[in-house]
Design a protein around this nucleic acid. Structure first.
Lengths: 226, 226
DNA sequence: TCTTAACCGGACGGCACCGTCCGTTTGGAC
DNA sequence: GTCCAAACGGACGGTGCCGTCCGGTTAAGA
């Protein structure tokens, strides 16, 4: 009932602790992107150049680490959305938003997908950030539609669908930037109001490859035990 | 060097063994779709109603089991391709192919994606089936383009890209058929030569949800340790 | 400089899954 | 009906990751 009198405000970390925390987050993002979200904690610790205990002291559970690592991406996406809203040309703002987020996904490879897969209920945590994002997105979509650039039957959830799909693609083909860009171009074209067939980026090199159709995957390397 | 003289031809299984083998494959597809490709072997065995030893006798390694389970899907996709080629209307054939494969992916949830992720080198095994599929697909694409239905700059690899992306989507939202259908509709429209904006299926219910943008995932449930 | 408390990392027990071994049961041929 | 080989399933040792405990080290204030 009675708390320690002082110390209510400051969970300030010592200089070295703060530095290590940062290193761990960077390492976690890299390792999770590379070896999947189930990668051993020890691997993250080693990559960060710290001991396992340090990692567990900073992030008591694996979930805490994953969530913290992912929070940075959420933040980045939020910024992208704000920037998109600031663009005077509504369509260009929308287009840039999609391209920016997809580029981020490309960099982070499969990590976002794995995160969403593992934490379906993570909405609550980012509640207010999410609410704001939702409002901003709605505004962006409406403006683009009012300008006659975005098709009228576009629904905000379509953006989530497109991003999830793209996320899945980069998870499957983490080294195929061409495939990613090609998909983004197709999607953006199909979102346009007047369907102008602009030029597409060059196609992916995969032959018919990485397909859940004839079973190939060309570049993939994530072991996942295999 | 010297093989057993007889027994070259017949690895015939006893009736009960054959029956159990079938059960195991069914159970494996279900379990892998539900709990991911790393699900414990014991779970598969239990679901199939057999002992662990039986499972290992039939499929010595986990890989062997996964590959065997996936082979059936490859076969189904091959049939879909053949049917598509048989359709007198090239575009309708193409459209049906995409829809059929995506529906299959929806049923199998994330299994194909996980397979491709885990076995990037699986192309070799299905070499001849794949070669044939590639030839067939090329024919299908050329015919549809010649008919002026499919855009001229469509590349066969675009199909693989689209399917991988869709696969990723159903992995992330295994229970959201609306999202899947919506994506397929968008993609098909963007593949059309003359960009006719037809009606889209109703949008997904996810609010802005399962997005690697504001971090939610609504329906997802696959644990993956979480 | 010195003290102290916070931080560090390696080592250790616990647990879950893997894959095999062996005694028992069952299909099917004579 | 009888017999045997093949198939069955439960139990068991091995391995790798998880998460905590403890003695040494270092930042930072007096």
């Amino acid at each position: 009932m009675v708390e320690e009198s002082s110390r209510i405000a400051g969970p300030e970390l010592r200089a070295d602790a703060r530095r290590n925390r940062g290193r761990i987050l960077v390492a976690a993002r890299e390792v999770f992107a590379e070896h999947g979200i189930d990668a051993p904690m020890a691997t993250v610790a080693r990559r960060a150049g710290v001991g396992v205990a340090t990692l567990y002291r900073r992030f008591p559970t694996r979930d805490a680490l994953v969530r913290a690592a992912f929070a940075q991406q959420v933040e980045t996406c939020g910024r992208a959305l704000t920037e998109a809203l600031a663009d005077p040309d509504p369509w260009r703002g929308f287009q840039r938003l999609v391209e920016t987020v997809c580029e981020l996904q490309r960099e982070e490879q499969g990590f976002p997908a794995a995160f969403v897969a593992a934490f379906p209920d993570s909405a609550a945590e980012h509640a207010q950030a999410r609410e704001r994002a939702e409002r901003d997105l709605m505004t962006l979509v409406r403006r683009a539609q009012a300008a006659g650039a975005l098709r009228a039957d576009f629904h905000p959830s379509d953006l989530a669908v497109a991003l999830l799909a793209h996320c899945g693609l980069v998870t499957a083909l983490p080294h195929d930037g061409a495939a990613s860009r090609r998909l983004v171009a197709y999607l953006l074209q199909s979102f346009r109001a007047e369907a102008a067939h602009g030029a597409l980026p060059p196609p992916s090199a995969l032959s018919l490859g990485g397909l859940p159709l004839a079973a190939d995957g060309s570049q993939r390397q994530r072991p996942s035990r295999a």
